[in-house]
């Protein structure tokens, strides 16, 4: 059986596309590099939007990447059920694309935050979190400038009541996110946005833990069983 193929999009200014591809490989899938200016998703089974500073975060983080040619292919595919994970800048792009609700504002403390962060996984029903136990605590790096998740009161209430908060910050809220929200999912559970970086915690040599690997093994398991 051929391995699942997981695309990783590179935008101008993406930083973590290589680490995302590496995490995909370690999880047992084949990473497929996707270029923002192409119109072709190359038939991949899932897509990761990596961290970084696409288009230099000009205007707003993710605001310009949202209109990349490849996004015109990705948005309808995501609506049709393609699993999509946006990490950090990828999360910002997914919110700007309206694939996920809300928005990410500058950190409340106005400092770039970079540290190992404890999280709790609150939703294990998504395409990207099935390998975790509900309530499992993990430690993965966080590093961002615009990580303060915000949504209007009605949207926030809906995210909470429908269990669409995927991960929450523990110990300390690094950026002022409402409800300590570190990640959310769409209604169908195929699109997940996450501010911390699981792709940096997949090997003990380079990461603080290997707690992040579960996001990638979850999607591999799902694709193999599909």
């Amino acid at each position: 059986m051929s391995p699942a193929r997981v695309g990783v999009i590179t935008f101008p200014g993406s930083l973590d596309d290589r680490d995302a591809a590496r995490a995909v490989r370690i999880a047992g899938a084949e990473p497929v590099p996707l270029w923002h200016a192409d119109h072709d998703l190359q038939g991949v089974d899932a897509v990761v939007l990596p961290g970084g500073f696409s288009y230099g975060d000009y205007l707003r983080a993710g605001a310009i990447a949202r209109f990349a040619p490849l996004m015109a292919e990705l948005v309808p595919a995501a609506h049709a059920g393609l699993p999509v994970l946006g990490i950090c800048n990828g999360f910002q792009v997914l919110c700007e694309s309206h694939l996920l609700p809300g928005a990410l504002l500058p950190n409340a403390g106005l400092h770039f935050v970079c540290r190992d962060q404890r999280l709790r996984i609150d939703n294990v029903a998504t395409a990207w979190t099935s390998e975790y136990a509900k309530g499992q605590e993990v430690v993965v790096p966080i590093k961002n400038m615009d990580g303060c998740f915000t949504a209007d009161a009605a949207t926030l209430a809906e995210l909470e009541s429908s269990g669409r908060v995927v991960a929450r910050y523990l110990d300390v809220n690094p950026n002022g996110s409402l409800g300590d929200i570190a990640g959310i999912t769409n209604e169908a559970g195929n699109v997940v946005g996450l501010m911390p970086h699981p792709e940096h915690a997949v090997e003990s040599l380079t990461g603080p833990t290997t707690d992040g690997l579960g996001f990638f093994t979850s999607i591999v398991k799902r694709l193999v069983n599909a």
């Binding site: 209109f67 919110c95 609700p101 928005a103 504002l105 915000t150 209007d152």
Partner: peptide, 8 residues
């Protein structure tokens, strides 16, 4: 479309 994000 671009200059403002109507969410915020």
């Amino acid at each position: 479309t671009l200059l403002a994000n109507p969410v915020i």
